[in-house]
Design a binder for these strands. Structure first.
Length: 616
DNA sequence: ACCCCTCCTGCCACCAAGT
DNA sequence: ACTTGGTGGCAGGAGGGGT
């Protein structure tokens, strides 16, 4: 039998090349499957890469139902955009390059929060390296006698320790760390991060009134955290009872399935906790009882259930009414008939008339039987909340699959005396108009992004962008008819009219003032918007674009399929005759727009005219 | 206290698609 | 032609931060 010859080979540069390629793909937006919104900036990235580098992201992507992951968009609110940009660069390059030393502490915090061991340990590494420098390095102010240097090169302010290479240089605002390479390829076994992610219920207790919690059953926890199966089904909800400047008193409701009981039996624990302490049972009061909810799932309508019942025990389509009139602390559960279920969605928007007066519809079971939602206890002053358009705090955070929450499943309905309120499932804001909720929901989902045409900012609402862009253009649309002065927005104009002319605008004005209100100012057409729409209308065509030269001549630009080679072709004008800006905006003081095709954008560059600058 | 600014939300107009 | 749903602008209140 002939012996096999085996050949082994290792590409030492493979990992580096691979990472570099991934980083290039990220830069080009290729294959990015997640958008991360931090402050007002959007970062595209690859889930696989994030998950591999960060235990936080690993956990997050494993737990599909994490409350803040909605589809392909993730919003991080515990980190600044500037810091996250460096974190992302590090993940995709294994390097921190010319990072302002002032950011180091935040980078360390970010590393700890995101489960990035290198960044989390950066402080320790820095202390060691600085200890090696022992006064030779300008940046070194902390020394560590325990630092063990395998090699120390301080002459050029480059330090090496345990695989860490650092280079210090003086930046404008202080020392800058450059050429810092990752310590090692040791696996992230960050128990802190793991346990942190595994206990989401506790993680957010610091500031939030309502804890966003999820079923603690990640399919593939990166750490081998063993979670008791009984605890996995634990659902915890917190409810603000008193939201005065004194903090928030909370009641904690815990639904624990009774393993020895029948299906649907839950042991309900209610405990009070101190304001803002985030500690269970701080005040000690606790009651426990068992309720059978099976009938709720299979029952015939209507039913009444205790308020401590979890929403996840209801069948899909059940409408849950808080019985605020006759029997406090109970719900009416209205189970739709089979015929109703098909038309349930269609009926939702046409159901302003509530036959059950004084029944507060606090929610509808929208997720499947495996859902992990719960109903928040209604505060005693719930009716006040209703009057304030902040009626309820419904805890419906724990969806097993956030992607299933489609647009038509982004809200609950509240019916109060026949009036419908639409409650956002994420933040619990209530709206009188469904359109308002739809518009608002993009703040969570970022299904649509509205990037500023003048800077890198991204907005969840078109109107925010428009208002922001007007700040760029400096356009002043609001004109005071008393003195003729123009203003950039309504608020400034109203303030001017109030302070200078001693007149009131708006609903707060007296009847006499209201009568004359319409004459106080006038609103000029929005040039900023018009020019953008004009640009889109022309540039939006797949085969051609229209541009304008500095003389104000409109150009028709043919697209030769070479994005970088588009050229203006004077003479191929889109209209029968050249159109100047005066034709479009014949008023004086019109801002100047230039067509910008340098970077492939079919956009119009706005140049603030001197007249505007003088006014500003 | 006042001003400035941003955010928010009810209301409305406009538009496109479907009936 | 009418209905419906989506979109986005406008008004004006609320609230935060700076002075």
């Amino acid at each position: 039998m002939e012996s096999k010859k085996l050949v082994s080979a290792t590409d030492a540069q493979h990992s580096g090349t691979l990472l570099k390629s991934l980083n290039e793909q990220r830069a080009q937006g290729l294959f990015c499957d997640i958008a991360i919104i931090v402050e007002d900036r959007k970062f595209r990235a690859h889930k696989n890469v994030l998950s591999s580098a960060s235990t936080y992201f690993h956990q997050l992507f494993c737990i599909d139902g994490a409350s803040n992951v909605y589809g392909q968009v993730l919003e991080l609110n515990f980190i600044r955009a500037e810091v996250f940009a460096e974190v992302l660069n590090f993940i995709y390059s294994s390097k921190l390059v010319r990072v302002d030393a002032l950011l180091v502490s935040e980078l360390i915090q970010a590393g700890q929060a995101l489960g990035l061991k290198f960044l989390a340990d950066l402080g320790e590494s820095l202390a060691k390296v600085k200890g090696m420098a022992s006064g030779k390095d300008k940046a070194a102010s902390v020394t560590d006698s325990k630092a063990e240097a395998s090699e120390t090169v301080t002459g050029d302010q480059t330090l090496k320790s345990e695989g860490l290479i650092m280079h210090f240089e003086d930046g404008e605002r202080g020392p800058i760390i450059t050429k810092a390479f990752s310590l090692s390829s040791s696996e992230f076994s960050d128990s802190k991060a793991s346990s942190k992610a595994s206990s989401n219920c506790d993680e957010s207790e610091d500031n939030d009134d309502v804890i966003f919690c999820s079923e603690i059953s990640p399919p593939k926890p990166p750490s081998s955290t063993v979670i008791n199966s009984a605890v996995q089904r634990l659902l915890v909800a917190k409810m603000p009872v008193n939201s005065e400047s004194l903090g928030v008193q909370t009641k904690q409701i815990t639904l624990v399935p009774e393993t020895s009981s029948k299906v649907g039996d839950f042991k309900v624990k209610i405990s009070d906790s101190g304001a803002g302490l985030g500690q269970n049972n701080a005040l000690g009061q606790q009651t426990t009882k068992t309720v059978n909810l099976k009938y709720v799932q299979e029952g015939k309508q209507p039913l009444t259930a205790d308020k401590t019942v979890g929403m996840d025990t209801f069948s899909k389509g059940c409408k849950v009414y808080a019985n605020i009139d006759t029997t406090p602390n109970t719900y009416h559960i209205v189970v739709p008939s089979k015929d109703d279920s098909a038309n349930c969605e269609a009926k939702q928007n046409r159901e302003p008339k509530s036959p059950e007066k004084k029944l507060l519809l606090i929610g509808e079971r929208v997720s499947g039987d495996r859902g992990h939602s719960s109903i928040q206890l209604i505060p005693d002053d719930s009716e006040n909340h209703v009057n304030n358009s902040r009626p309820l705090f419904i805890n419906e955070q724990c969806f097993p699959d956030a992607k299933r929450l489609k647009k038509e499943q982004d809200h609950y309905e509240l019916v109060v005396d026949g009036r419908v309120f639409y409650v956002c499932i994420v933040c619990k804001r209530s709206y009188a108009c469904l359109t308002s909720l739809r518009r608002h929901f993009n703040v969570h989902s970022w299904e649509k992004k509205y990037p500023c045409h003048y800077c890198e900012k991204v907005f969840p609402l078109a109107e925010y962008r428009t208002k922001h862009e007007i700040l760029h253009t400096g356009e002043r649309r609001y004109q005071c008819l008393t003195c003729g002065e123009t203003f950039i927005n309504y608020q400034v104009m109203a303030s001017h009219i109030r302070s200078v002319h001693s007149k009131k605008t708006g609903k707060g004005a007296t009847e006499e003032e209201s009568v004359s209100d319409s004459k106080l100012y006038r609103l000029l057409p929005c040039k900023t918007l018009q020019i953008r729409q004009y640009g889109f209308l022309t540039a939006g065509r797949s085969d051609s674009m229209t541009g304008i030269n500095e003389d104000g001549i409109v150009y028709h630009v043919e697209d030769d399929d070479d994005a970088g080679a588009s050229q203006q072709t004077p003479g191929t004008i889109a209209t029968s005759k050249p159109a100047s800006w005066d034709d479009i905006f014949p008023q004086d003081g019109t801002p100047v727009y230039r067509y910008n095709s340098l970077d492939g954008n079919s956009e119009l560059e706005f140049v603030i005219p001197e007249s505007f600058r003088e006014l500003a």
